[in-house]
Design a protein around this nucleic acid. Structure first.
Lengths: 337, 337
DNA sequence: GTGAAAGCGCTAACAC
DNA sequence: GTGTTAGCGCTTTCAC
């Protein structure tokens, strides 16, 4: 039904292998022949069948991108950047959604393995050991997880969390809550580790929670019960949900409770109060991860070089959801200075 | 490198064709043999190579999804629903982003054609004629465009736009502006057509514009210059940008200008003022479109049945960005009743 | 119910 | 520089 290499060969009066070479190794073909073949191909609307080609070469020119939740606003900019970068290198991308389920992650990696040159797993929920194992079945890179021997790009949320906590401390907050993310999230553990280290006072950890608006909303009461005057949330979506919940419960943000998110998704500039948050470079991460994956494929068979790791800086963006806390200077009966 | 049908055949002491049948036509194989083969396959970690299979059967179990902008919040819920529905039918999906460029759309459809069972083009920007032509090269369905002979699902934005305009009229607005969307958008034309018909008074059309927050922000001045007291925007993102622009220009929303969006993206509930908008069922559209595409593939070779069209209802969601206009009842010097 | 053989569209030695 | 041949992993006649 579709036009094949054979049709082009017939039309241009050469053998199919010459047509093949015209497309896969043009320099090996006489320039006259080449233009004739090209002309015929063009006219017939011939397009090489990549799947057939891959059967021989082993290169599919596809990559797999596995994310926890396409509709979570954190991911689309990353997906877009990855797709764009992939296409720059003439690759197409499969996108798959795991719904935060580690079992689905594993299944998807295996299901895609044969059709791709590599798989990118973003914010994986599965264990390091499993990732390690899967990386033997298919070239694999990871975003938001640091694993020895597995190429990956991480955003430095530890640094970001530290900045966020320091910001809250400097505002005079002493009772800080950390609303953590989903079980299995490396990012969530990093945030917790770093925030705990940075908080000189009490740090109440609430979680794990689903990384969604609803997840944030659901813990509002608990935050208030804990007596926290400031909160660092696992991501912006949760922070926004939390703010909704706090307001619904009668608390004002930031007058009664300060809230900091992480990611700086588009939403964060647009909600009221505008969210103070830690900006993570998601588009850059998507691009870097694709580059990494493609590089992995190129060094085929080499004695494995030192696996690359990319570390991206994060940045605190102070907006309107954080304000002064009941610190030493504002204690009841304090001196007006 | 990878385990093939041949390895399984060797391990289970049968011919490769028996292994093949075990996976593609299990009923043709003796149940004892079958379980033996299955056991060996399992143990070796065998997975059929879909690309190789497709070479013969013509079915890839992949579908292509082409959208204008992955990072535009309108699309992710649709992509997620489509992916989920596709996977229910054991299909994987390629996602590609055209950056609103019709030429890229065309190129992507052709580039993906050989690797998929069908392509879904969402909110296409290319011409009907081109879509028609492409549909001969690969099974194709369309979202947000009505074309005779091409299966598609549309959201009834005409109905939505009418409801929105009627809502504004009932609030007493007489000078209404329509901020239209990108050139080539069927949805934008539909909205314009329907809004024009519904508006009994002046309707100032501003556009075409890029369907983004910036696109909305950019026309704020023009809206004010036009003297409009109410605006219907092509989508929520533009409406939100527009509101930002209006506020920056010193106008209050909804006191001075009412704004209605279209789509009801997640953001719309979270910005302040909360956006009045026309809710479009994007997830349902994604699912329906995938079903349609898969059905297309199944009726292979049939004398083409009447092509299906799905029409999804929309709904006006009244929130806080619309309010009373300077209608008859609120004219200066009017009677306090 | 199973094996043998041909072939999907293409590439990659190898001759000439 | 081009044709010949084998074969990637798999399905699908066709015998038996």
């Amino acid at each position: 039904m579709s036009v094949t290499i054979r049709d082009v060969a017939r039309a241009s009066g050469v053998h199919i292998s010459t047509v093949s070479r015209t497309f896969s190794a043009p320099h090996l073909v006489n320039s006259n022949t080449r233009s004739r073949v090209l002309a015929c191909a063009e006219q017939l609307g011939y397009r090489p069948n990549r799947a057939a080609r891959a059967l021989i070469t082993g290169r599919t020119y596809n990559i797999g991108l596995i994310v926890a939740d396409i509709a979570n606003p954190f991911f689309p900019p990353l997906i877009k950047a990855a797709e764009s970068q992939a296409r720059k290198h003439d690759h197409h991308i499969f996108v798959a959604d795991t719904n935060e389920d580690p079992a689905v992650e594993e299944e998807l990696v295996r299901a895609l393995a044969k059709q791709v040159d590599g798989v990118l797993v973003v914010s994986p929920r599965m264990s390091n050991a499993l990732i390690e194992q899967l990386s033997h079945e298919v070239p694999l890179a990871v975003v938001n997880r640091q694993i020895a021997g597995i190429p990956g790009v991480v955003m430095d949320v530890a640094q970001g969390a530290r900045l966020a906590i320091e910001h809250l401390l400097s505002l005079g907050h002493t009772d800080i809550a950390l609303v953590s993310g989903p079980r299995g999230s490396w990012t969530s553990r990093e945030i917790r580790r770093s925030a705990s280290a940075a908080a000189r006072h009490k740090l109440t950890v609430i979680g794990p929670n689903p990384p969604t608006e609803v997840g944030g909303l659901a813990v509002a009461e608990e935050v208030l019960r804990a007596g926290a005057t400031a909160v660092l949330a696992y991501n912006d979506l949760m922070a926004i949900g939390l703010i909704e919940g706090l307001i619904a419960a009668g608390a004002r943000v930031p007058q009664d409770v300060s809230v900091v998110g992480i990611d700086d998704i588009m939403l964060s500039r647009l909600t009221r109060p505008k969210l103070t948050t830690v900006a993570t470079p998601t588009a850059a991460a998507g691009r870097a991860a694709v580059d990494m994956l493609l590089a992995l494929g190129d060094q085929q068979g080499d004695d494995r070089r030192t696996t690359a790791h990319v570390h991206l800086q994060t940045e605190l963006v102070i907006r309107d959801s954080t304000g002064p806390g009941p610190g030493p200077h504002s204690a009841p009966g304090g001196v007006a200075s």
